[in-house]
Design a protein around this nucleic acid. Structure first.
Lengths: 222, 222
DNA sequence: ATACAGAGTATTGTATACAATCTTAGTCGT
DNA sequence: ACGACTAAGATTGTATACAATACTCTGTAT
């Protein structure tokens, strides 16, 4: 069971990271021939890779006209954030009743690690990069709802990460974010689902609010 | 712009309805050759059709092993209902603030139609079939959130309709459901987002509660 | 009788070739 | 100068052929 991975899957995941990293820009075209030239193989696997990306909402395909990297308007981005806000709050509520004591212990340990990393003031970027995601990911895991997990991690997060430069709020408030994380975990440990949901909602709300103010500015211009 | 629809799309939508109607049963295999024999054409479009179905979560594909119609456990179904409950409640909350007065008027008209149809006691099945869906669809539309609409109508509803025999609750309570619909619309018309969300949540909750009791029974057996 | 191994078949993954559609550049007319 | 039409080129949709993998059935050994 070494490399049973299909070529289409490999190309798909490579393209996905390239898109998320911005190496391929929104609106840019993905021609099948160009992918053949770049990754080798034939058109069939490339086509399949593109379709997989379409399923992840990373590209838009128009019959006979080709595929383009998705290019979201601010309004579409607001829609996504709105849904994410709701689903992740829900996940937090469920996690408060469904996480095992051990999982909660682990989560507390993770936060302590983050705290140390911040105090050392050198893992700041670490905290930003994977730490924040890690925390949210564990909450989602804790919801014990696989469909929810699939929707949040599979569909929404790819796009959110792609446009993460919008979430400039989080950049210089790691301590504040950590505090909020801690209070969320406290609520979960207390099995207080309502409070946990509320705190998570507030925690994510800042990004959404920012986005909405951007939207408002944009409307002034038109 | 007559029949610019691609063969893969045609096969995909035909298969989708066949799956939702139960003509192709959960767990059944979808061989590419069989599809060629049934729908004509060659393997390439059939493959693409299957991939599209996978994107809709109607089939599961395993590399080198083929595709099967998705077969959900009760637990997976619970997950889906849980997410649907949350998202549709959210849609209702948003609709209360975002629907235009005209749209609300239309919605009230729709409910009056349903009422007549029920009193006549002949369109009972009509109410069940498209009427119920129509109501929920309009609320979702009213949320003005296209991503939310896509998730609910595109991904979740296909599967929910596929397993609708589970929602036996709704069968003999059209009057009750209509009442609930009316109160929801009243809340929307009053622009009371919180109440509208709460009422929708309760309205859908019965199905979820049923499912959970089924789950509980199942656990007794194991 | 059951479990395991292996060959053969069937099915999927990939490559290439052809047909249909769109895009683009250029020309013509107003 | 600008817009509509036309034709060449490029790209996608479809068909067919080959390669790689998985499934199945048979036979043997325990």
């Amino acid at each position: 069971m070494s490399d049973t991975q299909t070529l289409a899957e490999k190309v798909c995941s490579e393209l996905a990271t390239a898109i998320v990293r911005g190496e391929i820009r929104p609106g840019e075209r993905l021609s099948e021939k160009a992918l053949v030239d770049r990754y080798g193989g034939s058109r069939a696997p490339m086509r399949e890779a593109i379709q997989k990306l379409e399923a992840r909402n990373l590209v838009v395909r128009i019959p006979h006209a080709g595929a383009r990297v998705v290019s979201l308007s601010l309004e579409e981005l607001r829609d996504i954030y709105e849904v994410r806000l709701e689903l992740e709050s829900m996940a937090c509520r469920l996690a408060a009743t469904r996480m095992s004591d051990d999982e909660i212990k682990d989560l507390e340990g993770l936060l302590e690690e983050h705290a140390r990393s911040i105090e050392a003031d050198q893992g700041l970027s670490y905290y930003q990069k994977s730490g924040n995601l890690d925390f949210h990911y564990r909450i989602i895991e804790g919801s014990k709802n696989n469909r929810l997990k699939q929707m949040l991690c599979g569909d929404l997060y790819h796009i959110i990460r792609m446009y993460r430069y919008q979430t400039s709020t989080n950049k210089q408030r790691p301590r504040q974010a950590l505090k909020e994380h801690q209070r969320i975990v406290e609520a979960i440990a207390a099995r207080d689902a309502e409070l946990a949901e509320l705190l998570m909602r507030r925690h994510i709300q800042v990004s959404l609010t920012n986005l909405e103010s951007l939207l408002a500015q944009q409307e002034y211009l038109s």
